[in-house]
Simulated scan of single mutants.
Amino acid sequence: MNQQETRGQRADATRNRAQLLEVATRVFIAADDEPSMRAIAREAGVGIATLYRHFPTRESLVDAIYRDQVERLTAGARELLAELAPPVALRRWMDLFGDWIAAKNGMLDTLLAMIESGEIAHTQTRSELLAAIDAILGAGRATGELRADVTAEDIAAALIGIFTVARPPQHEARAARLLTILMNGIIAPGR
């Protein structure tokens, strides 16, 4: 096998893994209970062996989804700020946060066990998410568009509360309404 074929196989494997992560995330979001690995493989249109080749255990799949979602949230904050005014970026970021919460609902038992065992560092994730929120808030404070007295911890607590009572996708309209109310409270007076 030549070097170009090896690179092509690696690229295929990377694409397959990314596709499996995307499908698994959708399955976890839609699930009321933790879906089986077979259900995830079936939804992805692959055999169970292919899923296990990429993710040898349920925990490895949950870990990959969790880390992917945290990366999407932290990168999402930067990307949104580069394109949008801080209030709009914050509101769009809240939707990303809602997707993250929804994905966690379908894998909650496994995720909690992994956090308890130390396989996932919850405090590191919390710090990363608070830093993402704070970046958006800081940009909004600098432009005078967002209130100076609102903290990243305030936003995180409010979002957890909102998405606990209005879990997407079943209660998307209610979540959107509550997020609008939250945003109205974050916008700087006179804006």
Rank of each mutant, 00 (worst) to 15 (best):
3 Q>T: 13
4 Q>W: 10
5 E>D: 15
6 T>R: 11
8 G>T: 13
8 G>A: 15
11 A>S: 07
14 T>R: 15
15 R>L: 13
17 R>C: 04
17 R>P: 03
19 Q>A: 10
23 V>N: 00
23 V>A: 00
26 R>V: 00
27 V>A: 03
27 V>I: 11
28 F>I: 01
30 A>L: 09
32 D>R: 07
34 E>L: 08
36 S>G: 12
36 S>Q: 06
37 M>A: 06
38 R>F: 06
38 R>T: 14
40 I>E: 01
44 A>Y: 01
44 A>D: 02
44 A>R: 04
46 V>E: 05
48 I>S: 03
49 A>G: 07
50 T>P: 05
51 L>H: 09
52 Y>K: 04
54 H>T: 06
55 F>I: 07
58 R>M: 14
60 S>H: 05
64 A>C: 09
66 Y>T: 07
67 R>W: 03
71 E>K: 13
74 T>Q: 01
75 A>E: 14
76 G>I: 03
77 A>Y: 10
79 E>H: 07
83 E>S: 08
83 E>Q: 05
84 L>M: 13
84 L>S: 14
88 V>M: 05
89 A>T: 13
91 R>N: 12
91 R>S: 10
94 M>I: 15
94 M>G: 14
94 M>F: 13
95 D>G: 05
95 D>M: 06
99 D>G: 09
99 D>C: 04
102 A>W: 01
103 A>N: 00
104 K>N: 15
104 K>Y: 09
105 N>D: 03
106 G>T: 00
107 M>R: 03
112 L>Q: 12
113 A>W: 10
114 M>A: 06
116 E>W: 10
118 G>H: 10
119 E>W: 01
119 E>V: 01
122 H>P: 01
124 Q>N: 11
125 T>Q: 10
126 R>D: 10
126 R>K: 04
128 E>Y: 06
129 L>Y: 00
129 L>C: 04
130 L>I: 13
137 L>M: 11
138 G>K: 02
142 A>W: 02
144 G>T: 07
147 R>W: 01
147 R>D: 09
148 A>K: 03
150 V>T: 04
151 T>A: 12
152 A>D: 15
152 A>G: 15
153 E>L: 11
154 D>H: 15
161 G>V: 05
161 G>Y: 08
161 G>C: 00
162 I>A: 09
164 T>Q: 09
165 V>P: 03
165 V>A: 15
165 V>E: 13
166 A>T: 14
166 A>S: 15
167 R>T: 06
167 R>I: 08
168 P>N: 09
170 Q>D: 14
170 Q>C: 11
170 Q>E: 15
172 E>A: 11
172 E>L: 09
176 A>W: 01
177 R>I: 11
182 L>Y: 03
184 N>F: 00
186 I>Y: 04
190 G>Q: 12
191 R>V: 12
191 R>M: 05
